[in-house]
Design a protein around this nucleic acid. Sequence first.
DNA 1: GCGAAAAAATTTACGTTGGAAACATGGAGA
DNA 2: TCTCCATGTTTCCAACGTAAATTTTTTCGC
Lengths: 217, 217
Amino acid sequence: MLKENRKKYHHGDLKAALVEAGLAELEEKGLEAVSLRSIAARVGVSHTAPKNHFDGLRGLLTAIATVGFERHAAEMRRGVEDQPPGKARLHAACNGYLRFALAHPEVFKLMFSSTLCNADDPDLKRASRDSYTVLRSVAHGLDWDKADAPGSPWRTEWMLWSLVHGYAMLLIEGQIPRDDDRTPLFDMDGLLPDFAYREAELETMPPPFEGRGGAKL
Amino acid sequence: MLKENRKKYHHGDLKAALVEAGLAELEEKGLEAVSLRSIAARVGVSHTAPKNHFDGLRGLLTAIATVGFERHAAEMRRGVEDQPPGKARLHAACNGYLRFALAHPEVFKLMFSSTLCNADDPDLKRASRDSYTVLRSVAHGLDWDKADAPGSPWRTEWMLWSLVHGYAMLLIEGQIPRDDDRTPLFDMDGLLPDFAYREAELETMPPPFEGRGGAKL
DNA sequence: GCGAAAAAATTTACGTTGGAAACATGGAGA
DNA sequence: TCTCCATGTTTCCAACGTAAATTTTTTCGC
């Protein structure tokens, strides 16, 4: 009787419920319109209840972004395992990246907003790093030109990431049209260059992760 | 005596003053912290004075973003004219894109936020289109692979734009580290692939502009 | 079981925000 | 000069995030 049916004073798992409600509010009303009060109201608690579980609105948004990154990573991994290493995996991962961004644009924008989220949050860092790991793995061994040239060792990863992320952002913000019947380019297949891989590295693992190419996490 | 020295009831050019104050506030306090009231206060007028010149905060932000795009375009053009057509111009334009984004991150984020700005505003559309034109011109004739493959005729432009824009965004949001002494990659020279151009198209102009590859403006 | 302590949620209050409405001011043209 | 109207101001309002004090429930030692 503690569990169900009756309106309880203690919610039971308000923390998770708030994150879930936040994700829903975000998708319905958009990133700029979402408020602590509306999220709390959706769960049916007072607007100060979240204070017990999160460090203000910023903390709640951070938790929402964390879940976002987890689903983002899952969407990328979906299909990657089925493909053989190389271009097929690259496309699968990139299409997953784009698919998530277009399906959940408001969550996606939140995830990459360092002003709205607390970028120092350990959970957020872990989740975002895990998401980046997927991209990293499909970029490993990629033989883009200048790959052996002097410069950052993470150059290839950053090129691929920038390309996919930029395309997602420009599509989301309406800078590149989505609704134009002449150019229905809803996946990366048409955009990605015809990458080749260095065969020797294709089956190996990327070097140990140091946080998106050098940042001390 | 109408001009200077005395505190006038009518400001004279409040519209431009508000935009300028908005740009300053934006850079000082950041995109999320800026408010209509603080901008008005900086100019020394009441918080409802902007109403006579802009359609609410959204309208003011749109005007600010418009100026942002103008300066963004100017920063890209700076140096492009001096360079011969081809890779040199490409790098000059991309470096200008990145330079502006890193120098004015808050303005840059505003410019590409379709929720904060009124994307239908004619001035904003003109300014952003003009900015894109610079990128378009240096992408014209670019011989990325698959350039002749079926697909969108704007594919090359979008690839380049996505690459530069994504890199700028990831740097701004701190996803790619800027302060790492091992990887001081503050311009595009290290990131851009070693593009080749189709010589025949190098000296020609891009085809007539239709709005970022198909969007009906 | 019982009572104290802790956890979880509420109520109330405060300062700030963007917007609407009514009012005041002063410049420009009749 | 007189009037009109663009331009700012004052006042008010609802919604927001946060803080403090309070109430309710659960937990835990005995």
